[in-house]
Simulated scan of single mutants.
Amino acid sequence: MTRWLITGAGGMLGTALRAALAGRQPVALGRADLDVTERGAVEKALATHRPDVVLNAAAYTAVDAAETEHAAAYAGNAEGPAVLAAACAGAGARLLHVSTDYVFSGDATAPYEPGDPTGPRTVYGASKLAGEQAVLAASPRHHVVRTAWLYGAGGPNFVSTMARLAREGRDPDVVDDQCGSPTWAADLAAALVELGGSDVPGGVLHFAGGGRTTWFGLARAVFEELGADPQRVRPCGTDRFPRPAPRPAYSVLGDGAWRAAGLTPPRSWRAALSAAFAAEGDALRGR
């Protein structure tokens, strides 16, 4: 039986991973249980629990704050994964590390594939890329799985924000010039568990919701799921919401390598959104 260990188990993806592994008795360690930047603590955890597969959902995710909090961003996204990857290699465990579309420049016109040139434009993206490089250097068995536009019941996210606005009767202006693939955390968790139980060689893979939309399109879809009039959502440009960290205009991740590996392809982002509200509707609505 495969022994699983989850780091960052208290966050949105960590919550989904715990659910995906229900019945398999994973070791779930949140931030208070394990600081992945502490080499001694990480090595002790691996020696104690002897996992076959480690799923790393621990990360620094404050994209805008990272522009000034360089040290914190690199600690969470580069130093932590480096420590974890080295310790896993030493203990004979496979590491599945989750990364992001922000490692790319965001100016493509076709879906990004794993081998495409990276070019992060934010501190957050640069710190995540550094983490990827450390993980891949530590062992050829390790995996980096990039995803994008993640949402779910385990933490604040765009979908839950739009659901709250719909419930409150507010009519939001939402950016319509950024394109990506919304990804339900439960789908990503199931994909990571499938990958962890496979014999797919290590390296970089992409997993995100199938198809593409804009934040405006996603917001209207959320309103539709709640039975609210989607016309209440109005489109606008990125210039209406200036942020410290520039957002990628194009964040679509190609799933060609994932499919070629024989893994289950992602379902369409729209079908996943309906499934998310059917399974986690109260949590996504903030009830």
Rank of each mutant, 00 (worst) to 15 (best):
T214H: 00
E38V: 08
R267E: 14
L165W: 13
P81T: 00
A257R: 15
L95M: 04
D107W: 12
R94T: 08
A85Q: 01
R164Q: 13
D52W: 11
F207N: 03
T109G: 12
E79Y: 13
V98N: 01
L13V: 10
R3E: 04
R18G: 15
G90T: 11
V204S: 07
G154W: 07
R167M: 11
D239C: 04
A32L: 06
Y151T: 02
V63D: 00
A85L: 03
G262W: 09
V233F: 02
A153K: 04
Q25D: 15
L5T: 00
A28T: 03
R212Q: 14
N56T: 01
A261L: 09
V54D: 09
S274D: 11
T183Y: 10
P114F: 06
L226V: 05
T213L: 11
G155P: 03
A22P: 02
G92W: 02
D35R: 08
A260F: 05
L13K: 09
D239H: 14
L21W: 09
S99M: 01
A208C: 11
T100A: 09
G202S: 11
A137L: 03
T7E: 01
A260I: 02
A271M: 10
D173V: 12
A260L: 08
D199C: 13
T264P: 00
V54S: 11
W149P: 01
F158G: 07
A110V: 15
H70I: 13
D35S: 12
C179E: 14
A16G: 01
H70V: 10
A137P: 00
G202H: 12
F104I: 08
H143I: 03
T100F: 05
L165N: 05
F277T: 03
D116K: 10
F104A: 04
A148M: 08
S274P: 02
P201M: 13
F104D: 04
A191D: 07
A190Y: 11
V63I: 09
P156G: 00
L284R: 00
A71Y: 08
